[in-house]
Design a protein around this nucleic acid. Structure first.
Lengths: 249, 249
DNA sequence: ACAAAAGTGTTCGGGTTACACCCATGG
DNA sequence: CCATGGGTGTAACCCGAACACTTTTGT
């Protein structure tokens, strides 16, 4: 944090990028008759993310994480949100810093340091992403070769998502205000890629105090109507940065 | 990660800082009138860190984290190591990125983004720190008012240290190659600030597979000679950055 | 022999896992 | 009445906390 220093005069570019995760059913483009609703998170959902195609050198044509340079008058998170809105029209509820990537040779052009964020968005938010030649969704586990070190970055973000899902309450960022336990369990199963026991899952969630019943139910299914839940306000997200309130000792 | 952009031309300063942790006995130098009661069973080692005094504006005279600007030809971690060596002569074994701090108003001077690292050093390494008017050790839990947002940064680093101590194997970074279980337990007790049951601690460590006996013992104490241990090579540090090998699914 | 710390054994209780079983609804 | 998922009950198991107890040294 000391100022000046000769070496600093040659400027280092400062950029932000964001790994955006959403849950989508594997609708299978090769199977257009497929009945699956891509917005239904309960139907064997998977983790997807939107990428943008680079339209200039270097790495022109390659898919890359959305991002851009940081302005002098905006914070890192503000820069991430601005770039997200500009490139994908997304305004995620959950946005957390992931890591600062700063290897000397990570960009073949000029020296660039990228502070990378990761975001979680709900299906209805994901709908708003303007698709086209330049923006498209990809399944997180089967990405093409991306620009720069972005494959490494996505892998790291995926690891963080899965690790954090096990001890934190971030799953609700994929859901709306009200949800059934089956939907919540579907989020966990999609991210962790393994089936969970419905009975034990219910008890763990209820005893954690993270959720509370709204009183409503969902009718229309060919079975007993499930209760609706909402997240309790005092949910601890744990380590969403230095400003997160800590659990008292 | 896109290039150019008008807003980027006004340069943003990129700095690195490091929070260095070491364990020291509270010798009570700062409190000569009442050095802790030697019979007090709660007395144990504490977490200390070295700070440097700023010798120019802004915030001249205030204590601050060691750090400096990043050169165009060095990675972020290399910049952290270089600044550490220059200001404190430390070359820590354990060095991990903590967070990138980039609020617009965090430095009253010009716009500065700091990528902060945290390091753990052994007592023999800590000895090498050149003390004087400009460098001094402070107990982590009783810091003076530091420059800029460095109090916030240290608090966050402390939280990370204590959180990670509970699920990772970073404690060995405070110790030499060989150590007794009492010494290892002392590290945990100092960082977590609570006594641990020696019997259960032994079993947890032995069953974890993180340590293995060297065969040697320590003679000279007025008691049964304790066995010496070393860390097994395959210790998982967990989330020391994107390049850390992940636990297989 | 005694003190002190190393090291072992055992019990207890809370939490997780596995799975049997009942409930409510649409067809 | 049956199929389907929602929801409850329960026994087995695992693991950490607590603590009594034995071992081995120096004085």
């Amino acid at each position: 944090m000391s100022d000046s220093g000769d070496a600093a005069r040659a400027s280092i570019g400062l950029a932000v990028s964001t790994v955006i995760f959403a849950l989508r059913a594997d609708d299978g483009v090769a199977d257009p008759a497929g009945p699956a609703d891509p917005t239904d998170p309960t139907e064997r959902a998977e983790v997807w993310l939107p990428l943008v195609r680079r339209i200039r050198e270097p790495q022109c044509g390659r898919w890359a994480l959305p991002g851009g340079m940081v302005s002098v008058d905006e914070s890192l998170e503000a820069a991430a949100r601005r770039n997200l809105a500009e490139t994908t029209h997304l305004e995620p509820d959950y946005l957390e810093q992931l890591y600062a990537f700063g290897d000397v040779d990570r960009s073949p052009d000029r020296r660039l340091v990228s502070v990378v964020y990761w975001a979680l968005v709900r299906p209805d938010e994901a709908e708003r992403v303007t698709l086209g030649e330049n923006v498209q969704w990809f399944p997180a586990d089967a990405l093409p070769e991306l620009a720069f070190d972005h494959n490494l970055i996505v892998d790291y973000a995926l690891w963080r998502l899965r690790t954090k899902m096990e001890y934190s309450a971030i799953a609700h960022a994929f859901l709306g205000d009200e949800f059934t336990l089956a939907e919540l369990r579907g989020v966990y199963e999609a991210v962790l890629q393994k089936p969970l026991d419905p009975a034990n899952f219910r008890r763990q969630m209820e005893s954690s105090g993270a959720i509370e019943p709204t009183g409503g139910v969902v009718t229309g299914g060919r079975h007993r109507p499930p209760k609706l839940y909402r997240y309790a306000g005092d949910v601890q997200l744990v380590d969403a940065g230095p400003l997160t309130p800590r659990i008292p000792a």
